[in-house]
């Protein structure tokens, strides 16, 4: 095959990848519509679309769609997108396929923060009580990632060190959470356990807006770093040789990961495995050119989370399962598959 034929094939491959990213975006939007039509009060798709497009509908329908279901559905979409993007960047900069906010202690730290608010009543003064748990969860998870970066820097910032610290943080936060659960009253304990299972029910347009803003700010920077991130996948020495400041790349990527993960987790509780499964499915679809991998991860995560939100309403009729439980049930097989496939470094 001649050089120009090979280049043609390369361009065709890229167009196919772009199309796949577009398809994932469309699927994610369809998943949101399905999510919107699912719920205790049966609303057909046509009625939902009529409501969304501003047509004349009964007031009850309007309230269900705009105030109850839409914030939840949009939040599911955003949380999935945020966690999968965080997972994709983390896996690349820590050079580990199992890295994600959940496995490296961010979620555990958020749960500990929520526990401190729920059980001990300690939170930021002068904050509306409704935001206390969220604020604590946010600060603790951001703190966990900050600590991770600091520890990493003390020891040279290599990926192995960061991974080990992340795992240690995970266990530390879990241990303190157990302590809180032990001393908690029955009522507090129930609230805490439900929080740690992850739920979309407490969200409102305010929290949706905050997460949307965080995503809007971080995504452009992530996309701008996509060539550097791809270079890092070839190895740290290679990337440095190409002129990439790997230390700075790692630091900024982890800052983006911190903001995305801390915001998402603080608003909906512990959501496992989206940050793991999203990027891995995306990688299988479009490869590791981060110009495609990052957007594909975002839409795959959004799609998975929307599907989980829908499933959480359908799995047991009449019961709304915590969405974090559903994502774990979806994600665990992926996790095992990744380990059993036994190809390190991918």
């Amino acid at each position: 095959m001649s050089g120009s034929e090979l280049l043609d094939r390369y361009h065709r491959q890229n167009r196919r990848r772009a199309a796949l990213v577009g398809a994932m975006a469309v699927f994610a939007l369809i998943a949101v519509l399905v999510d919107l039509t699912t719920g205790p009060s049966g609303l057909p798709l046509s009625e939902t679309i009529r409501t969304l497009t501003g047509a004349e509908v009964p007031r009850g329908t309007s309230v269900i769609v705009w105030q109850v279901r839409l914030p939840v559905a949009v939040m599911a979409l955003l949380v999935g997108a945020a966690l999968a993007l965080a997972g994709a960047e983390m896996q690349t900069v820590l050079e580990n396929p199992l890295a994600e906010p959940f496995t490296l202690g961010v979620s555990a730290a958020a749960a500990l923060g929520a526990g401190v608010a729920i059980v001990l009543g300690l939170t930021i003064p002068f904050l509306p009580p409704a935001w206390g748990i969220t604020a604590n969860a946010f600060l603790f998870s951001l703190g966990a990632l900050g600590l991770l970066q600091l520890m990493g820097r003390l020891r040279g910032g290599g990926p192995e060190v960061l991974i080990l610290f992340g795992i240690a943080l995970n266990f530390t936060a879990a241990a303190f959470l157990s302590l809180l659960q032990f001393v908690a009253s029955a009522e507090d304990l129930q609230q805490l356990v439900i929080w740690t299972m992850g739920s979309l029910q407490a969200v409102n347009w305010g929290s949706v807006t905050i997460l949307a803003l965080v995503i809007a700010v971080t995504v452009p920077f992530a996309l701008m770093a996509s060539w550097k991130l791809t270079a890092l996948r070839l190895g740290e020495e290679q990337a440095r040789g190409f002129g990439v400041d790997v230390t700075a790349l790692r630091r900024w990527a982890l800052l983006r990961v911190s903001l995305l993960a801390a915001t998402a987790v603080s608003m909906v509780g512990v959501i496992g495995f989206i940050g793991l499964a999203g990027p891995h499915i995306a990688r299988m679809l479009v490869g590791e050119d981060h110009r495609f991998l990052l957007p594909a991860s975002i839409f795959t995560g959004a799609l998975l989370m929307s599907a989980a939100s829908t499933l959480s309403k359908l799995l047991i009729t009449g019961t709304l399962l915590p969405v974090g439980l559903v994502t774990s049930l979806i994600g665990l097989p992926v996790f095992f598959w990744l380990i059993l496939r036994g190809r390190p470094g991918r």
């Binding site: 791809t230 996948r233 070839l234 190895g235 020495e237 290679q238 990688r283 490869g287 590791e288 050119d289 190809r343 470094g345 991918r346």
Partner: peptide, 8 residues
């Protein structure tokens, strides 16, 4: 070191 086995 050789470039690692990325999906590229």
């Amino acid at each position: 070191s050789l470039p690692s086995g990325a999906s590229l």
